[in-house]
């Protein structure tokens, strides 16, 4: 019984410790670009949530598809209603692992392995990121490519020249200590 108590106390302590290692970004930016022969499409989401856990080297991000802003408003409607179907799949998420720990040096390049879920479909991705520690916060930036076809997003043949087959995704997160726990 004593052993159990000891274990409980120890684990609660360690759990508390790990929580202190969490960092959160509430206004992360995700931008995507589609370069096609008829038109270029660019959209930006300024309300992306992300959490970074240095103890477990884990990272997760979540965003509402509705929150993407397009240069042209009609694109926003078509993106949500005809392509990404945000009524059915309101969010896009990412969960992954940092392959290395973070040293306190300046900007460093890290590979994040994880799974991205868009339009209800999950795919493995490897993302090259740059992590920089600033006083009180961490800054994470990077980019990767997504193939539209992988996510069962259908583009009618007549509009195939309006939308790129491969979309470039860029992100920028500013993490602050997660004080909610």
């Amino acid at each position: 019984m004593n052993k159990l108590k000891l274990l409980l106390i120890f684990s609660i302590f360690s759990l508390g410790n790990s929580v202190a290692q969490q960092f959160i970004a509430r206004q992360g930016q995700v931008t995507f670009f589609s370069y096609a022969s008829v038109e270029n499409i660019e959209a930006k989401n300024n309300q992306v949530l992300s959490i970074l856990d240095f103890d477990k080297k884990e990272i997760a991000a979540s965003m509402l598809m509705r929150a993407f802003v397009f240069k042209k408003d009609l694109m926003h409607e078509h993106f949500n209603d005809s392509y990404i179907e945000s009524d059915l799949y309101p969010k896009a998420t990412f969960e992954g692992f940092l392959l290395e720990g973070l040293e306190n040096a300046g900007p460093q390049t890290q590979l994040i392995k994880g799974k991205v879920t868009i339009h209800g479909i999950t795919k493995d991705v490897d993302i090259k990121t740059t992590i920089q520690k600033t006083p009180e916060s961490y800054n994470l930036t990077g980019e990767f490519n997504l193939t539209v076809n992988d996510f069962n997003i259908k583009i009618p043949p007549i509009l195939s020249k309006n939308i790129a087959k491969i979309v470039l995704v860029k992100f920028n997160f500013q993490y602050l200590p997660h004080e909610n726990n």
Partner: peptide, 30 residues
Amino acid sequence: TSTICSAQNLLKELDKEYPDTPTYEIATFK
């Protein structure tokens, strides 16, 4: 504890962080 620690749990934690703003229907007609 092991379930608590998965990345899935981080996503759940993020779900709690979404601000409570109203969502309106779009594209009732196109």
